[in-house]
Design a protein around this nucleic acid. Structure first.
Lengths: 229, 229
DNA sequence: GAAAGAAAGTGTGCATATTACACTCATGCC
DNA sequence: GGCATGAGTGTAATATGCACACTTTCTTTC
């Protein structure tokens, strides 16, 4: 069904860089393209924006269609608008990124995608289009943002130990942190709720569990308090 | 001349939030719309992206067409993609922002714009489309960014005094800064070149002039040094 | 049930950065 | 010559960042 406009216009897509964390380190979610161009090559999940659908909504929809992930909070990264980034025609892409807890989400490839899989961020293959550039920007943004905004709690289970939290920061920032200083710092922010619960089934002293106190965080954010970890 | 595509697609525009500084404070550049919709209402300069033209290039072109400003470094702000932001149809807009030295640039309204004028950021009228929202985001971003990136030098003449620089920061951040601490800080960054020149025609002791040392800045940036003012 | 292993939990001192604060000096104007 | 205006300059108090090591608790193994 053809559609006609008075003036030509570029096509518009969304792409979603999804980061996850497991024991091995930081991962990124890629799909194997099922259609041309770049059929069979790995790419960031995404697709075309339909008119009448907000761009944010398109990103959420495409992510679910291609990978099965839902209820993900996507944050806008950047818009890539070079005319030659797609060999077919001028396609402008709004890129998003998000962090998810690897364990809580199951993957299932579908529309336009042969398969979906997690790749270590240190081992990302040659991607379709300019997706390596998009991925690089997302990783840079993630590293920059994680230092002064308490994102990253998405990557952990609801209840976590301070050591798990520290390990997450060490993986993302790619550097070791001092245990005592880290605990001092993160507790002084007062955005963690100490639970009356401890770890189970560990072969050593069980650590206290904490949860992220989103209300306390928002309260501080409204006051304009600055964070840094 | 109609253009036909297999699938419908939203239209794509760019919008440019341009900040300037003069004695009175921080200003923003607006145009009075010469065509429907919102004819006669003030708006952020911008326009449609042509296929084959990078989105960045479209922003630069539209800015010049509507206001006469050229050689401006535009930084991407955010992409606004709600389907109802334009009453005609779904129009997605990539917003940019920039800082310019008010004195060095002359305005001249042209295509689609009746006139262009500078407005105090505290006194922005009701704008067309969702442009108030775009403006608010640009101002927030500017305030956030100016504290840890030496942007803002664009707002000043090439040669400036430390007092002028301080005044600029005070205007953007909307708070007074201590003269001695400010000088200590900004000089310790070593991104200013002290010139062998002083102010002229002032009714008091003439201040030393400085210029922004872009090479020194880039050198430090490559080393990953952090700034804060 | 004693010993060994594993990670939890905790405080201090030094170095650096941030903040508050006030006077003298140079110049132009009247 | 005196006055008005802003330029230029240092120090002390406080807060923050950073390096660093041992004891406690619990599980497992023998």
């Amino acid at each position: 069904m053809p559609h006609t406009y008075d003036y030509p216009r570029p096509a518009l897509t969304v792409d979603c860089v999804i980061f996850g964390l497991d024991d091995e380190g930081l991962k990124v979610l890629l799909i194997e393209r099922g259609i041309e161009p770049f059929e069979g090559q790995w790419a960031i999940p995404g697709g075309f924006v339909a008119p009448g659908e907000s761009v944010d909504a398109a990103a959420v929809r495409e992510l679910q269609e291609e990978t099965g992930l839902k209820d993900i909070y996507l944050e806008q990264l950047y818009t890539f608008g070079e005319p030659d980034r797609d060999p077919r025609e001028h396609v402008v892409s709004v890129a998003y990124y998000a962090l998810v807890n690897l364990i809580e989400h199951d993957l299932e490839a579908s529309t336009d995608a042969r398969s979906a899989a997690w790749f270590s961020v240190d081992d990302v293959p040659d991607l379709a289009f300019d997706h390596n550039q998009i991925f690089d920007m997302a990783l840079t943004r993630l590293k920059g943002k994680v230092r002064y905004q308490p994102i990253g709690f998405e990557l952990l289970p609801k209840k976590f130990t301070l050591t798990q939290l520290q390990r997450m920061y060490e993986i993302i920032l790619e550097k070791p942190l001092d245990k005592r200083n880290f605990r001092k710092k993160v507790l002084s922010l007062e955005i963690l709720k100490a639970l009356n619960e401890i770890e189970k089934d560990v072969a050593h002293r069980a650590a206290r569990l904490y949860s992220f106190d989103e209300r306390a965080y928002r309260r501080l954010q409204r006051k304009g308090v600055h964070f840094a970890i």
